[in-house]
Design a protein around this nucleic acid. Structure first.
Lengths: 240, 240
DNA sequence: GAAAACTTTCAGGCAGCGTGCAGGCAAGGG
DNA sequence: CCCTTGCCTGCACGCTGCCTGAAAGTTTTC
């Protein structure tokens, strides 16, 4: 019969997140999708609200917009840490990389993502930070499906033991497919998760990247990337 | 005598739906058939009515036309969620994919269906979203009848253990037959459920697709798809 | 600041699919 | 037994969705 039990959720460890963001649209986008990804999400829309929320709910990680109406993100963190909390942070920043303060963040185990970002980018960073800071129960950084291997830390990809070079978008797409192996993904879903949220292009770009991936990663038997005409794509082992 | 108790309804969990649609014809079509499919349906014909209806009846899922006279669908959702409701949504949208806002709909477990749609398409999406968002009591995604198996998530179909490839319409038709196993379905009924509601064609297309299905899926003993001359078709195990 | 790598769009081509038609066959009634 | 009616299915046509090469546009690298 069919393969097997669950393949339940693309879920991650059920960690508690605090998401701090003043733009209502982006906040909604983030909380909806992070919740769906299996996190326990609470929210705040200002710096001061964030500080007290962090005190009460003791999140495992904070997703924090740098630009806030009252305090800026760095102030928020300073206050939290004065209060004794060492919660790791993933910052959301605007693209003006001139901001020196961002540098040096990765030293403390924190990280940042620049707006606009894709959800795959953000969740990958969140997972990576949690992996680093949650010592003990090693969340593995290596995804494996059939003879396909992808290492989230080193960004290395192997098919049938052979190293394959992927561009950033190709990598993100493949990771998304692997995290959702055996689940059919529509082009709309792929666009929503792998491309930046402000992308205004059409579905065809997904077709293009599927084509690139096939050439680089799926050019041997058995084929793993399958098209379901009118429905979407799926990563799976061929019929029994 | 006869087979047995019930085989009651093609019922899904008796979930409460709120259907929001301003076109009276379509609203009637939807509420009638969703009710028949076993849902507990309430309706609204404007955005503001929808918001307050949602507050009062706390539906398990909202079917929401994007184009409404007062607020648009996105505003409705925004207001509902500001009110603390996390109800999942299936949007009904026009086909002109140019609508930027469509992006991001698949993120929180929500989904959308483009007009014109078939009732099978819509109910399948509703079931899928409920399955995903109702954690806990796993509604199975696999329909089984005799040695026929159909997986709604992966779109895989097996007959007697053998994998069978179906086109989208073939798949929808088979799903409809399986959801209504042991119930006689007229060609008109099939046309109404499996084909888009604006289809203006001939009954003969149902005959054609039944023929395709027989060839692909019913070419072994015992035959499961039966013709009732002058009445319709039925999926059932041969006489005792 | 030039070159290389990467992303995005465009367009041609192809295969799978949906639909209508028509000839043939089977069932049922007179 | 023949005629009628309803159903089955092969065929053909046109359309849609998908794939991919190439070019244009953008970002990164050196």
């Amino acid at each position: 019969m069919g393969s097997m039990a669950a393949q339940t959720q693309p879920k991650q460890s059920e960690a508690k997140l605090l998401v701090v963001e003043d733009d209502a649209n982006i906040l909604e986008l983030l909380s909806a999708s992070l919740r769906f990804a299996g996190f326990d999400v609470s929210t705040a829309t200002s710096g001061s609200a964030a500080v007290s929320a962090a005190k009460n709910t003791t999140p495992d990680l904070v997703v924090l917009d740098v630009m806030l109406p009252d305090l800026d993100g760095f102030e928020v963190i300073r206050l939290m840490r004065e209060g004794g909390q060492r919660t790791p942070v993933v910052f959301l920043t605007a693209r003006d990389g001139t901001d020196d303060k961002i540098r040096g963040l990765t030293l403390g185990g924190d990280d940042y993502v620049t707006k606009p970002f894709s959800l795959e980018e953000l969740t990958a960073r969140i997972r990576a930070v949690l992996r680093r800071t949650t010592q003990g129960d090693e969340e593995p950084s290596r995804l494996v499906f059939a003879d396909l291997e992808l290492d989230e830390e080193t960004h290395e990809v192997y098919r049938a033991g052979q190293r394959v070079q992927l561009s950033p978008t190709e990598f993100k797409l493949l990771r998304y497919l692997m995290l959702n192996a055996n689940r059919v993904l529509s082009k709309a879903q792929i666009l929503d998760h792998v491309w930046k949220y402000d992308f205004r292009g059409d579905d065809n770009i997904v077709e293009s990247y599927i084509s690139y991936l096939r050439r680089k990663v799926d050019n041997v038997q058995p084929r793993l990337i399958h098209t379901l005409r009118g429905v979407g794509y799926v990563l799976r082992k061929p019929a029994v």
